[in-house]
Design a protein around this nucleic acid. Structure first.
Lengths: 176, 176
DNA sequence: AGAATCATGTAAGGGGTTACATGATTCG
DNA sequence: CGAATCATGTAACCCCTTACATGATTCT
């Protein structure tokens, strides 16, 4: 079963660079993007349980002498595949850029993986189609009405995102 | 007690133009912005109960001969005040523009209320401060690193929103 | 001596969703 | 005659958060 929440993919990503226990994942995600994606500590452990139940990660317990024993998590083959598939899939909605798309870019960079340029290209095509859809819809509505304000908002948002993708994300993605 | 969810304010707004029962609110919100803000039918009734418990609305039952009887909702004085206060308060986060700020603009327009221009001005000032904060933060980080991409994203988003506010929302707000 | 760090959880609650229940009426 | 409309809800579940529980160790 594929995860349904974006946060689970982030946790899988945190394990791509090697086995970690819960507390380490927490620290890693906290420092990676100014804590922007770190789920609450309790939710983290809930998700780890779920990922283990769905066989995307596996664990073994390591007892320590001077510290509480820890559960060390590791990606399974399925887990690694699931993460990479997610990583290379563009997001569908504008609202998913802020966290999810930036998350993908982070992992491309952090893990030095290839394919970031392709993802950005796919993403650009998706947004271009969306912009076209909005533009045709704008032509069928009352100028000066409220819906005109709404479509203006949407169109500007999409266009601004497109410029960012082309002028900043693309150079960042291909810079290695 | 003031509502904590944006959706409750939208429901209060739906009652500003006169008493309605649940089903009518549902239709009203569904047609107003292409169903973008309508909560699920079940959630709507849950929120109506809550708004009644907190005395922001009150209800009386009207039995009908050929139809199921309906519970007609009406704003209390406190409800009307609560709505108007919300309406005139700018949103704090960029992520609240898409639904909440557009919602406010809708009600200013639909109810022909004054003050939309003031709200837009306040909103512009908030975003200008935010843009400044991001710009100073950009100067303190590694050029070419991932965080540079993040701040580029944030800055462009805010700047695009500012242009929209000035070029579209402002004329819309003062056009009457 | 008290605070922060290490380490993993449970419980309660918030806001939302889909699915389901009920039952009459009117439209095609 | 079946589907859509009118009208109001309950139940189950999802993802998330804060508060709380536990207990040792190391830093100040």
């Amino acid at each position: 079963m594929a995860p349904q929440s974006f946060t689970e993919y982030i946790i899988l990503g945190a394990l791509m660079s090697g086995a970690k226990h819960g507390y380490e994942i927490m620290q890693f995600l906290g420092s990676a993007l100014e804590a922007a994606w770190r789920p609450s500590t309790s939710q983290l452990y809930v998700l780890l349980k779920r990922l283990e139940n769905t066989k995307l990660i596996e664990s073994h317990t390591e007892s320590q002498e001077t510290r509480p024993s820890k559960r060390v998590l590791n990606l399974t083959t399925a887990g690694r595949e699931t993460f990479l598939e997610w990583l290379n899939t563009p997001v569908e909605h504008v609202r998913d850029f802020r966290m999810e798309f930036l998350g993908k870019m982070f992992f491309f960079d952090f893990l030095s993986l290839s394919g970031a340029g392709d993802l950005v290209e796919k993403q650009i095509r998706i947004l271009e189609k969306l912009a076209e859809k909005i533009r045709t819809r704008v032509n069928n509505i009352d100028k000066k009405g409220f819906m005109n304000l709404v479509y203006g908002y949407k169109l500007r948002t999409v266009e601004s995102l497109l410029l960012w993708l082309i002028q900043e994300a693309k150079p960042f993605a291909v810079k290695k």
